[in-house]
């Protein structure tokens, strides 16, 4: 038995010794002849990055600088919808009154998300309209209902309290909107609209306004202004009011940065891992590191897509709940600081 093992180990070593130089030589050979093959031979998942990455090694040896550009190009918004290798669509530029209202890649993604959401929920809503209370949902409706019910009970009801129904429409929409935006970034030819700070800022602004309206409704103008003083002595107001005023904006800013940074960071990590193999020009790095690690990060990104959508919704609900139900200033601060 021992002998057999020794022989086996020996053969494996021999095979490795044969294959490694072979792989290395093939690597340099293919890189020299067809720059597209590395991307094509990787798992289908990397197709997302294939169009952009294909250009990098082809253009020259200074891949390191190019890689950064390509990554940024992939993450940033632009006016071209690229469907390489099939071609690209130039998006129209619209300028109204000095404002650039062009339809960019991310706007298109937002519309795709909207279309998918509306189609999905038109289907589900139609089924619900037909359904009696005695029927159980199945298939798509069941899957969507699990998420809807989760947002309704564990997010809205748990954080806002008895008035949760008023804010439920917003919370549900924001959850599914962000979730789908996040997920579409992981699809070939897709891009993450929520990885753009303008999108997240807009969504956080909605939460901000809803939170302020909820606070105003719950406490009135007087209570709202009193809250800005932090309940301290008038002598301290000169310090407290600016602090509280800034405090109002930290929450939406935190929401903005969190979502944007999470979505952007994941993509940068995946692309960087892929690019390591191009920069080092090695199949071994691709097989041993780039592909498995980027698959791992990709799966992590799937989880993060759900997690960030949940966190955004959860925190929105929490802020609304804190603003509308006032349970003492300390708790409020503690709750805000905690998140």
């Amino acid at each position: 038995m021992k002998r057999v093992k020794a022989i086996k180990a020996n053969t494996i070593l021999k095979v490795i010794a044969l294959i490694v130089p072979l792989l290395l030589s093939i690597n340099s050979f293919t890189l020299a002849s067809t720059p597209e093959t590395p991307a094509a031979s990787q798992s289908p998942k990397t197709e997302v990055t294939a169009p952009q990455t294909a250009a990098a090694p082809a253009e020259g040896a200074e891949g390191e600088e190019k890689a950064g550009d390509v990554i940024m190009h992939h993450i940033l918004d632009n006016h071209i919808l690229a469907f390489e290798p099939f071609g690209e669509i130039e998006l129209p530029k619209i300028v109204v009154g000095g404002f650039d209202l062009s339809i960019t890649k991310h706007v298109v993604m937002l519309w795709v998300v909207s279309a998918i959401l509306i189609a999905l929920f038109a289907l589900a809503g139609g089924k619900y309209k037909k359904m009696t209370a005695r029927q159980a949902p199945k298939g798509l409706t069941n899957a969507l209902e699990a998420l809807v019910e989760f947002i309704r009970v564990d997010v809205a009801k748990a954080n806002i309290g008895k008035d949760y129904a008023k804010y439920l429409d917003y919370l549900l929409t924001v959850f599914f909107f962000i979730l789908l935006c996040n997920l579409l970034g992981l699809v070939p030819y897709g891009s993450t609209a929520t990885g753009n700070i303008n999108v997240t800022l807009t969504l956080a602004t909605f939460t901000f306004f809803i939170t302020q309206v909820a606070a105003l409704k719950a406490h009135g103008i007087k209570g709202y202004l009193a809250h800005l003083t932090g309940g301290t002595h008038p002598a301290l107001w000169i310090i407290m009011i600016p602090i509280e005023f800034i405090g109002l904006f930290t929450k939406p800013v935190a929401l903005t940065i969190r979502l944007f940074a999470n979505m952007t960071a994941g993509h940068i990590v995946i692309l960087s891992l892929i690019f390591i193999s191009f920069i080092l020009k090695s199949y071994i790095v691709a097989v041993v590191m780039s592909v498995p690690f980027s698959i791992f990060i990709y799966l992590l990104e799937l989880f993060v897509a759900f997690l960030q959508a949940f966190i955004f919704t959860m925190l929105s609900a929490l802020f609304i709940g804190l603003a509308s139900a006032h349970e003492g200033h300390e708790e409020h601060e503690a709750g805000a600081a905690h998140h």
């Binding site: 918004d77 619209i94 404002f99 650039d100 209202l101 062009s102 339809i103 960019t104 991310h106 706007v107 937002l110 609209a193 753009n196 303008n198 999108v199 800022l201 807009t202 969504l203």
Partner: peptide
């Protein structure tokens, strides 16, 4: 990007 904010 005011355009993107507007469209969002």
């Amino acid at each position: 990007n005011p355009g993107l904010i507007f469209w969002t």
